[in-house]
């Protein structure tokens, strides 16, 4: 093959990769935080008795889940300015990923809400709590515990989706890796290091989520 592995060039640019990773994490964090708010609200709409709340929420989730995220990213960044909605690269990507997360998290939360026995709501009503108080102090905390395992995999998958920001030249990890690849021609080394960074970050995220799960698990 005539190719000898030499990581020196990649190590020299390692800082760049780490900066990229930091930006990836920041993008994921911002988008998921906004997405969680959208998702929680949407989930309550999805289980609502009122069609006026349920139907729009269902349409939103269906459209987002059935459209490739790359199309959404490009649409927001390149097409929406035509309608006067102009955002910077990073803002545009966070906006898209937040909307995208919202739909996926809504499904996660919806499943969690459905798993809560109706009796708990009635017990709340019986001591005179309002529907809103029941949601905030009983249903949401229980739902959150229930969904932690699937929340974990959704969060990891959303983190990986930040790689798509490379398509609109946001200097996150994938973008930096591609740049180093082109500049140094250390092709194999670059991609090994870049994917290892992703894999390790995903494992750390998974471990963190498991720690949260253990921390919040109810004594029995």
């Amino acid at each position: 093959m005539g190719y000898t592995l030499n990581f020196a060039a990649v190590w020299r640019s390692f800082d760049l990769l780490l900066e990229g990773l930091a930006l990836s994490l920041a993008l994921a964090f911002a988008a998921i935080l906004i997405g969680a708010v959208i998702g929680l609200f949407t989930a309550f709409c999805l289980i609502s008795k009122h069609g006026l709340a349920r139907r729009p929420a269902g349409i939103y989730v269906t459209i987002i889940r059935n459209t490739p995220i790359l199309v959404l990213v490009l649409f927001t960044y390149f097409a929406l300015p035509q309608l006067g909605f102009r955002l910077g690269k990073i803002e545009s990507f966070v906006f898209t990923l937040a909307l995208y997360s919202g739909a996926y998290l809504a499904e996660v939360f919806r499943a969690g809400l459905l798993s809560i026995p109706a009796g708990l709501r009635e017990a709340g009503l019986a001591i005179g709590l309002t529907e809103m108080q029941i949601r905030t102090s009983i249903i949401a905390p229980l739902m959150f515990r229930n969904v932690l395992p699937s929340l974990s995999s959704t969060i990891i998958s959303l983190f990986k989706d930040t790689s798509l920001a490379a398509a609109i030249a946001v200097p996150e990890l994938t973008f930096e890796a591609r740049k180093i690849n082109v500049e140094t021609f250390r092709v194999i080394e670059t991609w090994i290091v870049a994917s290892c960074l992703y894999v390790v970050t995903c494992s750390i995220l998974a471990a963190l989520m498991r720690a949260v799960e253990r921390r919040l698990s109810l004594p029995r």
């Binding site: 093959m1 005539g2 990986k160 690849n181």
Partner: peptide, 24 residues
């Protein structure tokens, strides 16, 4: 599987595109 599932698909695509040519 853990390695593949921990890597974004875009990285797999780019790596496959660039790396395979390099190794001939």
């Amino acid at each position: 599987t853990d390695f593949i599932r921990g890597t974004p698909v875009l990285v797999l695509v780019l790596a496959s595109y660039y790396v395979l040519g390099t190794i001939g």
